[in-house]
């Protein structure tokens, strides 16, 4: 069998993607590295080129080399399915890449640091406004649990349906559980799409 809906069943598996988002320094790269089967990979894109969309070399070479880096990891699910995790910074200078980042993404994990919840606001806004399913992972730096989940939800103005899970991005089981929370969330959403709610 295969997951293909198209005629590309020529041996290559299907690639799916989960975005690991959130503001500066919330633990995105750490989480990707913790669960990836390979050391996190890093790739770059030219900011000047991609944001300006130029196609003449002169225009590019005259400018300073500005690149943005993003890191990603890989989990081979089975011979037909590969899951990629992309750490996606929340800075606005990254927005130009987001069409490509979002393409093929099943959903996202937005990591937050309870001491600096505000740095992840932009990521939450982004996924909310595009209707991309996400869960919030509360990265427990230094075991800090200084805020109740209710407080965090309120501060993030989180929709009640959006799961919020505590995690430690350095811990494999905890990081895996955040990803599983997203998959469960997606499954619940899928069920409610395909099966109408029972009438009461």
């Amino acid at each position: 069998m295969g997951y293909a809906s198209s005629d590309h069943g020529d041996g290559a598996p299907l690639a799916v993607k989960i975005l690991i988002a959130g503001g500066f320094g919330v633990g995105k790269t750490t989480l990707v590295g913790t669960v990836s089967e390979v050391a996190p990979l890093r790739t770059e894109e030219y900011l000047t080129h991609a944001s300006v969309g130029v196609d003449d070399l002169e225009g590019v070479s005259g400018k300073a080399t500005t690149t943005v880096a993003l890191d990603f990891g890989r989990i081979t699910i089975n011979s037909e399915l590969v899951l990629y995790l992309f750490g996606t910074p929340g800075q606005e200078r990254f927005w130009f890449m987001w069409n490509d980042l979002v393409n093929g993404a099943m959903g996202a994990v937005v990591l937050v640091d309870t001491r600096r919840l505000d740095v992840s606001f932009a990521s939450i806004d982004f996924f909310e406004s595009r209707g991309i399913p996400f869960v919030v992972g509360v990265n427990c730096f230094h075991g800090v649990r200084d805020r109740s989940q209710e407080e965090i939800r309120k501060a993030l103005d989180l929709d009640p349906q959006v799961p919020l899970v505590l995690c430690d991005a350095r811990n494999r089981a905890a990081s895996r559980d955040v990803l599983l929370a997203l998959v469960d969330h997606l499954m619940a959403a899928q069920r409610s799409r395909t099966a109408p709610l029972p009438t009461s």
Binding site: L14, A15, V16, I75, L81, V102, M106, I132, L186, M187
Partner: peptide
């Protein structure tokens, strides 16, 4: 040759239950 991803995040796209179950089972083995 290239195999493109499925366009989940695009309008109306959503991963099938088959894919979700496979991902869940794969993650559980981590």
């Amino acid at each position: 040759r290239a195999r493109p991803p499925l366009a989940f995040a695009q309008a109306g796209g959503f991963p099938s239950m088959t894919i979700l179950e496979a991902v869940r089972d794969g993650l559980r083995k981590l």
